[in-house]
């Protein structure tokens, strides 16, 4: 079967800094990929390239068989949901309005339809009672769950997570990871950039380790954690698991 995401030898530079060099990655439908690596290794840049929040300089990215360019970006983004480290909820809109904006303006749903769908996803992330509040009135964990629901309201086929728990207080990480694990169980294709190795062991089909803009190692989690092949990966795992 054709992979739903094909990244073929992409490069990305920020001035003189090579954020990505020659990165290739195929993701099958329903596959869960966890990307890890030291900071500055290009993991965020990679997933930001997949929905064209960053424009790659060389190589090719195909999402659902469509090559990403300026023209196809909007269409591709409808099928790709994204969750950010800083949540990026719209602070002036209620939770419900945050969720219905996309479906109403992009999918053309009527208000009631969009609201019904929004409530359905709010139930799924277990905060339907917060629908009328503004994002600023919620805890970080709740905000991130709203952000997940907002992405899901667009009914994407792929979900990208850019360090979704890095900005959270420790006691709120679990509630977000639980929602993500549940989503993984529903068969969603997911690429997750995270340092939560417990989550990775639980959910990932494949681990991707990046360093200095390159994919250094790819392996199923059992193998990845027990017998990492490269030294860089071993060092990294020792550093984050060792404390």
């Amino acid at each position: 079967m054709q992979p739903v995401i094909q990244v073929r030898g992409i490069d990305k530079r920020f001035g003189d800094f090579r954020a990505l060099s020659g990165v290739s990655l195929n993701v099958a439908a329903g596959e869960k990929i966890v990307v890890c690596g030291p900071s500055g290794s290009g993991k965020s840049t990679l997933i930001r390239c997949i929905n064209r929040l960053e424009v790659h300089d060389a190589g090719e990215i195909l999402v659902g068989g469509v090559a990403l360019d300026d023209r196809s970006a909007d269409k591709v983004r409808r099928d790709v949901g994204m969750v950010f480290q800083q949540f990026n909820l719209f602070p002036h809109l209620t939770v419900l309005r945050n969720l219905t904006l996309g479906p109403m303006r992009v999918r053309g749903l009527a208000g009631e339809e969009a609201e019904a769908k929004a409530m359905e996803y709010l139930e799924r992330v277990r905060i339907p009672e917060q629908a009328e509040k503004l994002p600023g009135q919620l805890s970080g964990g709740q905000q991130q769950r709203v952000a997940i629901a907002r992405a899901l309201c667009m009914e994407p086929e792929i979900m990208l997570f850019d360090e979704p728990t890095s900005a959270l207080d420790p006691e709120m990480i679990a509630e977000v990871l639980d929602v993500m694990a549940e989503l993984a169980g529903s068969g969603m294709t997911m690429i997750v950039v995270t340092h939560e190795m417990g989550f990775a062991k639980r959910v990932a089909d494949r681990m991707v380790f990046m360093d200095k803009g390159e994919i250094v190692e790819t392996a199923p989690p059992e193998q990845f954690f027990s017998a990492p092949e490269t030294e860089r990966c071993q060092t990294f795992l020792n550093q984050i698991l060792g404390h």
Partner: peptide
């Protein structure tokens, strides 16, 4: 970016 991610024009 969040607006782009839900493909708002």
């Amino acid at each position: 970016e969040a607006a782009k991610a839900i493909s708002l024009n």
